[in-house]
Simulated assay, not measured.
Amino acid sequence: MPNTQVRSVKSTEGVNRIKRSPRKIRRLGLSLLAVILLGVIVFLLVPSPIEPVKWLAPTAPSFQKADPWKQNNKLSAAQLVSDAPQFPEFITFDKAGQLYTGDSDGKIYKVPFDAEGNPQKAQVFADTKGTPNGLKFDAKGDLIVTDIKMGLLSINQSGSIEVLANQVNGKPIYLANELDIAQDGSIYFSDTSNYGRVTFKEIAENKPHGRLLKYDPMTKQTTVLLEGLYFANGVALSADGDYVLVAESYHYQLTRYWLKGPKKGTSDIFADNLAGFPDNITRDEQGHFWVGIFTTRLSFVDQMHRSPWLAGIMAKVPESLLSGASAPAKHGLAAEFGPQGELIGSWHDPEGSLYGVTTAASHNGYLYIGTAPGGSKGVHRVLLTK
């Protein structure tokens, strides 16, 4: 005969455990909630690493209206030229029409073309051991490079590298980014930020840390032309060499510095309220400027600039957690401007197969597209049909 008394005791103990379990769960939940609330309070009380400046960013242009920013599919049919360079930040060509571009791992690639204009296998031309961004051939045929880690470099045809400048006025060139070369050999290039790296804190802070520099190959001296730029980026000279442009990525504008004429030594705004973050600038044979737009406008960034308190809070968030929020929108975009700053047209890939555009370079009937980490990979091109 079964022991009903023992069974009854065990049954009672099981019921008691079931009754106590919800209490334990509630206590555990309340403890966890208290820890979270304490963490939030501590997070809010910890001082922000920056002192943000309020900025009412202009309303972003619409891609739907019938204006030069109107959305189209001109970049959607892009052809892959080479996938050897993963992120071809900038694109230039030598006198023979061979394409050169740098990659984020330090390598600079050369891509030749056959008689029909078809791209051939990419070859490694040089390795800066840094991150080469801007590239341009000088009159001697040497490749001048702005490397964000190494400074301003010169690379001869055998691949030998010489550092031209990594300091100005006794202080470091923090982040040499893009360049152009004048007819007299002067090299104009951007020093993006004294932060020395790309960081979300800078965009949240909304203070200007960039510069436009000039290197004189005769005196081998580097001078500062402009300071106080909001993330100084792409650089391009006008066809006549009377001014030089520099992109201010974080304020969606192109700034013009006058080199000749009655305005010499002064600066003004060449184009403003761009539909995204302008990156590199190239000039075509018509004297027009092509601007790569790394990402279209990010609404949360514009909203953040309206509230220094919110910007300060965002700057405390670990950047590893913000990588997704600051990634480029999957919408390829490049813009063409006339010599007076007028927007002629825009080229889009709303499908997002080609995005994170840094460079748009017109060459032999094609528009060549470069990108940076965070965007699509490889060198692409599309026919220059209007």
Rank of each mutant, 00 (worst) to 15 (best):
Q253S: 10
Q71T: 15
L99R: 01
T59H: 06
L343S: 14
D94P: 06
L383C: 00
T192E: 11
N3S: 14
D138R: 01
A122R: 04
K107T: 15
L237P: 04
S104P: 05
K171I: 12
G324H: 10
L30E: 13
K260P: 02
L259N: 10
E13A: 15
R211T: 11
D302R: 04
L367Q: 11
G261D: 10
G345S: 12
E162I: 06
G210E: 10
L259R: 06
K54S: 03
V168I: 02
V42E: 01
F63H: 03
K107N: 14
Y195C: 02
I281V: 13
L310I: 13
H331R: 13
A182E: 12
V111F: 01
E227V: 10
K136T: 03
T282S: 15
A372L: 13
L32S: 14
T255F: 00
G97D: 12
A327K: 09
I293A: 01
T128Q: 10
Y368L: 06
E116W: 05
S158L: 09
K70A: 13
E162T: 15
A275C: 08
M1E: 14
L367R: 10
N156M: 06
Y355P: 07
I161P: 03
S326Q: 12
T101Y: 03
I155R: 04
G159Y: 05
A360K: 00
L310W: 09
K149M: 09
L164K: 07
I148D: 11
Y368C: 07
R197S: 12
L75N: 00
W258C: 01
E285S: 15
E227A: 11
